[in-house]
């Protein structure tokens, strides 16, 4: 454990002594996290703001991007009242350089690309534009880039989610939220499969499976796998490989009882039994009035009140994200 921590500090300490090397390492690739979950109001933006702040407080350079063009408010949560530039400028081709859209936040190490709208009616960026955006995001010189996704299962939202190194699904212990989390997961699952698989017949099969009332009786992804295998064994193998790489992270927000905590385990089990995917239960955040007050005060809770109950949980999740090697070592130790 100490060895890993030391390994970590090598990179950070390089930052102060040999800037070119450090920036070269950094320029290599930020870790891109996307936070979605289907339902509005489950705390996606709250989570992104606080995880971004917690990572920044740990000394990592962080860029938070609001890609929720229809309900942008990440800037408010981060205490940037009226950002002078917006992702909307990039979407509308007014600005090609993502770096020029970056604004400072009151927090050290934390920068923001807001999504405030200059005018109404700007739609989701088209596919090609999204690709450009994601390319730029993956090259951005920061340790972490956090994407705050909008609600729903629009292809743009799913694309951001799938393009991220880690996709976080936020849910709260309510039927509507859990249902939407599954719709989100299902949409992400099928989209990923469609992209991973090449032949037209198989793609058509997946499109059929996405229709819940399909005639082939494909009810679960496992049924789908069976169908694909009988149609094209090579594609079947690709399907399984793609499945194994797909590891959404679950965060349960607004936890009030220990029963609520168990929801994460239950959803993880459903992911395995129904979707055949290994989701990771990243953690939970309890219900805390201080969280609401921090939103009103327009400051991330982990910054304004790091010892508040919810802040402790948020910080814990951020530590897990900050040290992926540790997490993956844990995974290896915990492997069945």
């Amino acid at each position: 454990m100490t060895a890993r921590r030391e390994g970590e500090s090598i990179i950070t300490s390089l930052g102060s002594t040999t800037p070119p090397l450090a920036s070269a390492l950094r320029a290599a690739r930020p870790r891109v996290l996307a936070c979605g979950g289907g339902k509005g109001g489950v705390g996606k933006t709250f989570l992104v703001a606080n995880l971004a702040a917690a990572l920044a407080r740990r000394g990592r350079s962080v860029l938070a991007i609001d890609v929720d063009l229809e309900g942008a408010n990440l800037h408010t949560c981060l205490g940037v009242p009226s950002p002078r530039s917006s992702l909307a400028d990039f979407v509308a081709h007014r600005e090609e350089d993502l770096a020029k859209l970056v604004v400072d936040t009151p927090l050290r190490n934390l920068k923001l690309i807001a999504a405030t709208q200059g005018h109404l009616g700007a739609a989701q960026p088209r596919h090609f534009r999204r690709e450009r955006l994601l390319q730029a995001v993956h090259r951005f010189p920061a340790d972490f880039v956090l994407l705050d996704l909008g609600a729903g299962t629009h292809p743009a939202v799913i694309d951001y989610f799938l393009a991220a190194d880690e996709g976080l699904i936020v849910l709260s212990p309510e039927p509507t939220s859990v249902e939407n989390a599954y719709s989100f997961l299902r949409a992400a699952f099928y989209r990923r499969m469609r992209e991973a698989l090449a032949t037209r017949a198989v793609r058509r099969l997946i499109a059929q499976a996405m229709d819940q009332r399909n005639e082939r009786g494909i009810r679960t992804p496992l049924d789908l796998l069976r169908e694909i295998q009988s149609l094209d064994p090579a594609e079947g193998a690709r399907f399984v490989a793609s499945l194994q790489q797909f590891r959404p992270r679950l965060v349960v927000n607004e936890v009030r009882t220990s029963e609520d905590i168990k929801l994460g385990f239950a959803v993880r089990s459903v992911c395995k039994k129904y979707f055949g995917i290994d989701a990771e239960y990243l953690g939970y955040v309890n219900h805390d009035e201080a969280a609401r007050r921090s939103m009103l005060a327009r400051r991330p809770l982990v910054d304004s009140q790091p010892t508040a109950d919810a802040a402790v949980y948020l910080t814990r999740i951020a530590s897990k994200l900050a040290d992926p090697r540790r997490a993956s070592a844990e995974a290896r130790e915990g492997a069945l």
């Binding site: 309510e174 039927p175 859990v178 168990k262 385990f265 239950a266 089990s269 459903v270 129904y274």
Partner: peptide, 26 residues
């Protein structure tokens, strides 16, 4: 105990995914 809770008939995590007969057999 976790599985029991996860697949209970009133479970928040499973009711919208598994059909009733599948849930019963699980």
């Amino acid at each position: 105990r976790l599985a029991q809770g996860a697949y209970a008939s009133d479970s928040l995590a499973t009711y919208s995914v598994f059909a009733e007969e599948d849930a019963v057999s699980l």
